[in-house]
Computed example of a mutant assay.
Amino acid sequence: MTTPSPLGGRNRMLFPTMPRGEVVATYETYLDAQQAVDVLARADFPVDKVSIVGSDLKSVERVTGKLTWGRVALAGAASGAWLGIFFGLLLLIFSPTVSYAFVIAAVLIGAGFGMLFGIVSYAINRRRRDYTSVMQVIATSYSVLVDPDLVNRARNLLGAEPDIAPASGGWAQPQHPSDPPPAPPTGDDERPPAPPAPPAPPA
């Protein structure tokens, strides 16, 4: 027995589920997977049946530089100036009698307070964090999933071949049960060995 939700159909959007489908190709970067979906979209493929699934998520922190007193002061002044511009223009819109000198004063006051706040914050946290960084969550691989009924069409559009990966990286296509078996290898290295030479006659 299920309990009806007061949100109705909107409840399904609050709890996302994993998409169902078959892997058409796997890529090392999200950009490659995005380009594959663009190829399908340009070919009038029903892209609403396509999903990009990232696997093995990792948190990556990229260090962008070292913090210094001057850098902290400049960043604080810039953020404070933007806040001053916002409040100054807001007051100018609702009070037309206010002159532009008030906006300039708001910018200067905001820059001063922003610089002071940045310097104080840096002085407190200097020993714990003395650098700037950017946090990112990336996946080790990105798989393009398609509904099972459209897998063959997607493979034909992407030119996918099983067990073949380009030399520059890119995607590697998994073996599918409907794919024909691979042809036996050919080449000079696979030739049968030559028969042994007959023994020399006795002297």
Rank of each mutant, 00 (worst) to 15 (best):
M1E: 02
P4C: 06
S5K: 07
P6C: 00
G8E: 11
N11T: 12
R12C: 03
M13I: 14
P16C: 04
P19V: 07
V23N: 11
V23D: 04
V24P: 04
Y27W: 12
Y27R: 04
E28M: 10
Y30H: 15
Y30Q: 15
D32P: 04
A33H: 06
Q35E: 13
Q35V: 08
D38R: 15
V39I: 15
L40V: 10
R42G: 09
D44F: 01
F45Y: 08
V47T: 12
V47N: 02
K49Y: 02
S51V: 06
S51L: 08
I52Y: 02
V53D: 07
G54A: 05
S59F: 12
R62C: 10
V63Q: 08
V63N: 03
G65S: 04
G70I: 13
L74W: 03
G84T: 09
I85S: 05
F86D: 15
G88I: 05
L92F: 07
L92C: 02
I93P: 00
F94C: 12
F94R: 10
P96T: 11
S99C: 10
S99P: 08
Y100I: 15
A101F: 14
F102E: 14
I104T: 14
A105N: 13
A105L: 14
A105W: 09
A106R: 03
A106Q: 07
V107T: 15
I109S: 12
M115K: 13
F117C: 11
F117T: 12
G118V: 07
G118F: 04
V120R: 09
S121K: 11
N125D: 10
R128H: 07
R129V: 12
D130N: 14
Q136F: 00
Q136P: 01
T140N: 11
T140C: 07
S141L: 07
L145H: 12
V146Q: 07
V146F: 08
V146E: 13
D147R: 08
V151M: 09
N152K: 03
A154E: 00
G159R: 01
G159C: 01
P162R: 00
P162D: 00
P162E: 00
P162N: 00
A167V: 06
S168V: 01
S168R: 05
S168Y: 03
G169I: 03
G170A: 07
A172I: 05
P174C: 02
Q175D: 03
P177F: 09
S178K: 04
A183W: 10
P185T: 00
T186K: 09
G187S: 06
D188F: 15
D189L: 13
P196Y: 11
P198Y: 04
P199A: 02
P201G: 13
P201R: 13
P202R: 09
A203Y: 10
